[in-house]
Design a protein around this nucleic acid. Structure first.
Lengths: 350, 350
DNA sequence: TCGGTCTGTGAGAGCGCTCTCTTGACACGA
DNA sequence: TCGTGTCAAGAGAGCGCTCTCACAGACCGA
C-alpha cells in the first residue's frame, strides 16, 4: 500500500496545470510547446515560465494517441551472431543512427531477431504500426521484412549492404569506388602485378569491391589476370590461405588489395613467412580501416568507410519519408576515403 | 491530398470494432486481450475469432495513457568510441537484453550519448518518465545518470562492470572467479612460475581479475612475486610490451594468465619471437573467449563470460523492479567458464 | 420462497494531449 | 455608426484504451 502510494505520487505535471498557473487555456500551452507562431510574446513568456517552474514534460503517449505518430523508429539488425560480434560496423552504424534520431527527438527502438520465429514477431511488431518507420540493416535476400513493411505501408530504409529486390530506399557506402581508389593507389605506386583477395561472391560488398579492382586495372589499360584474383571469406585465416594460393601461382606479385583488413592481416603474416617484405617487396592495402589496421606492422593502408555518417543518412532519409508521406525512393551512396599508411609506403623502383 | 488520404486510410482496427463484431462490450474485449480470467470460454472464443478476423493490434499509446506504463525500457551505452567499436561485449549484451525484453513485449529504447551534453539530454529523457526503467551499461564514476534516475524514481539496473557508489542493482560476471579458474588451471598443469598481464588499475575488470590471480596462488600456498605482475591496457600491443618486460625480469616463466585475449595474443607473438614454445615452454591463458582466441596458433585457452545471459539477467532484474515497485537491491554475479584449448595443453614435466 | 453471495458482462468516466471551430478584441474604411 | 477583416485565445470534442462500479442472472442455504 505504501509502495503503491509512492509509485502513484510520482508527480506528473500536465498541460492543464501549466495552463492554470500561466492563466491561459490548455490550447495555448500546447501552442507554445509545439512552437506555434500564433502566440503573443507576452503570453509565450508567461507559459514558458510556468513550464520551467513546474518542470513540465509532455506525455508522449497522450500526444501519440492524437497525432497518430509514435515518435519512434525501429532499427532491425538481423545478422547471424558471428559477424555481428566481430564487426565494428554495427556499433558504429547504431551510433550514427542514434545521433540523428535523438536530434529529432525520436526514439530508437532496437530489434535484434535471433531466429526466423523472432523475425516473424519483429515483422508483426513493425507492421502493427508501433513505429513511424524502420531502418533495416543487412537483411538477407529471403527476409520477409521489406514485403511486410510495404504491405503495411510503413516507410523504411535499407542500409549497410545492397540487397536483392528493388523499389526501396537505400543508403550504402561506395564499395566499388573505394576498392578502385585502393587499386589506383597501388598502380600509382609503381606496382605492376597487383592481386586481390576478394570476399564471397554472394555478398554485395564482396562483389562490388572486386568490380572496383577491375575498374582500376581497366582504366589503367592493364589486362586482368584471373589468376590474380582469390576469393576468401573476409576472415584472417581465409585471407592467409588466399595469399598462399596467390603467391604459389604468381610469385611475381608486388601489390595486393584485400577486401577487408582482417584478410589483409592474414595475407601480411603469410607474406612475412614467405620472406616478402611489406611494403618494399609487396605493397598491401586493406579495407574497412578497422582497429586491426593499426595493430599490424607495418600499419595497414586501408579504405575508410563513413559508417557513422551512413547511419545518420539512413535516419535522415527515413525521417523525410515519414514526414512527407512521400513515396519517392532515394538511393544514397557515400564516398569512402583511402587512408595511407606504411603497408603501401614508398614507390617501387622499376 | 491523395497522399494524405492514403496515409489516413491506414486501417487501424480498434477495440470498439472488435467488440461490435463479437457482439460484446469494449470491456470484455479488453479482458480477453489482457488475459483476464473473468471471461467465459464461449465469449473468449468469439472475441478471439473477431480479433483474428480483423487483425486487431492494441494501440500502445492509448494503453500507455491509462496504465501509465510506457512499455519500454531504456538501455544506455555511454562508452567512448574506442572500446565500443572493438569489443564484441556490447553487441552480445544487447542481444541478451533484446531477447529478454521482447519476450515480455517490452520495447528496447537504445540511447548512446556521445558527449557530456548528450548524457545530460539522456538523463532528462529518462527522468521524464518516457521509459519504465533503464539498463545502464558501463558508465563511469562521474556519470550523473544514477543520481538523476534515483531522484526521478525510475528503476534502473547497472551492468557490465562494477561502478563506484552503492545502493543500486547490479549484474556482473564473476571476473575474480574467472581469473582464479584460469590460474588454478595453470597450477594444475604443473606450472610453477606463473605471471599475469593485468588490466588498468582503474577498471573494475582489471582489478578483479588480478585479485583472482592472487586468490589462486594464495590458495595453492604459493608466494606472490610482484615482479610476475605486469599491467597493460587490454590491447594487443600493451600485452606484447608487458610480456617483454616480464620475460626480461623473469626468464623462468612457464605460465602466463593474461586478463584479455588481445593481451594474450600480443604475449604469444612475443613468446614466439623469444623462442619460447606455447604451450610446451610456456602455457598461456586469456580472458573473454573472443574470436581472436580461435585465430591464433595454438588456439587460446580462455575464460568465457556469459555475456548474453548477463543481458538477459539485467533485463529480468529490472523487470521485477518495475513490476513489483520493489526497492530491493539485487546483485547478481554470473559464473564464468574456462574453455581449454591448445595454448595450455599438456602437462609440464617437472 | 427469500435474501445473500458469486460471477460474467456492460456502462461510462477519464488518462493528457491536439486540433478544429468559435469567440472576442481591435483596427480600419465607408 | 456599422460592417469587415485579422488575429490571439478559449471551448470542447475525441484519440483508443483500462478500470471501477453497477447490474443481471445463476446458485445456494435457510
Amino acid at each position: 500500500m505504501a509502495q503503491l502510494a509512492t509509485r502513484t505520487r510520482r508527480t506528473v505535471t500536465t498541460l492543464e496545470e501549466v495552463a492554470s498557473r500561466a492563466g491561459v487555456s490548455r490550447a495555448t500551452v500546447s501552442r507554445v510547446v509545439n512552437g506555434s507562431p500564433k502566440v503573443s510574446p507576452d503570453v509565450r513568456r508567461d507559459v514558458e515560465a510556468a513550464i520551467a517552474a513546474l518542470g513540465y514534460v509532455p506525455n508522449r503517449a497522450a500526444r501519440s494517441l492524437v497525432t497518430r505518430r509514435s515518435g519512434s523508429i525501429g532499427v532491425v539488425i538481423s545478422e547471424p551472431a558471428g559477424r555481428l560480434f566481430s564487426d565494428p560496423f554495427f556499433p558504429r552504424l547504431l551510433r550514427g543512427i542514434s545521433a540523428a534520431l535523438s536530434a529529432r527527438d525520436l526514439q530508437l527502438v532496437l530489434l535484434m531477431p535471433a531466429s526466423p520465429a523472432d523475425t516473424d514477431r519483429t515483422a508483426d511488431y513493425l507492421a502493427a504500426g508501433h513505429v513511424d518507420g524502420a531502418l533495416l540493416v543487412s537483411l538477407h535476400g529471403d527476409d520477409p521484412l521489406p514485403e511486410r513493411m510495404t504491405r503495411a505501408g510503413i516507410p523504411f530504409v535499407h542500409g549497410g549492404r545492397p540487397v536483392r529486390g528493388t523499389g526501396m530506399s537505400l543508403v550504402d557506402v561506395d564499395n566499388r569506388g573505394g576498392a578502385k581508389s585502393a587499386v589506383d593507389h597501388l598502380i600509382a605506386n609503381g606496382r605492376t602485378v597487383i592481386a586481390t583477395i576478394t570476399g564471397p561472391a554472394d555478398m554485395g560488398a564482396g562483389v562490388d569491391r572486386l568490380s572496383g579492382y577491375r575498374d582500376a586495372l581497366a582504366e589503367a589499360g592493364r589486362p586482368i589476370d584471373e589468376r590474380l584474383i582469390a576469393t576468401a571469406d573476409f576472415t584472417q585465416e581465409g585471407g592467409a590461405a588466399a595469399m598462399e594460393r596467390l603467391l604459389k601461382a604468381n610469385p611475381g606479385i608486388d601489390g595486393v588489395f584485400a577486401a577487408s583488413d582482417l584478410m589483409a592481416a592474414g595475407a601480411m603474416s603469410v607474406l612475412d613467412a614467405a620472406g616478402r617484405r611489406v611494403p618494399q617487396d609487396v605493397a598491401l592495402v586493406g579495407y574497412d580501416d578497422s582497429p586491426i589496421a593499426l595493430s599490424v606492422r607495418p600499419q595497414l593502408t586501408s579504405v575508410r568507410q563513413p559508417i557513422e555518417e551512413m547511419g545518420q543518412e539512413m535516419a535522415r532519409v527515413l525521417i523525410s519519408a515519414v514526414e512527407e508521406a512521400d513515396p519517392v525512393q532515394r538511393r544514397v551512396i557515400l564516398a569512402t576515403e583511402l587512408i595511407k599508411r606504411g603497408s603501401s609506403a614508398g614507390r617501387r623502383q622499376p
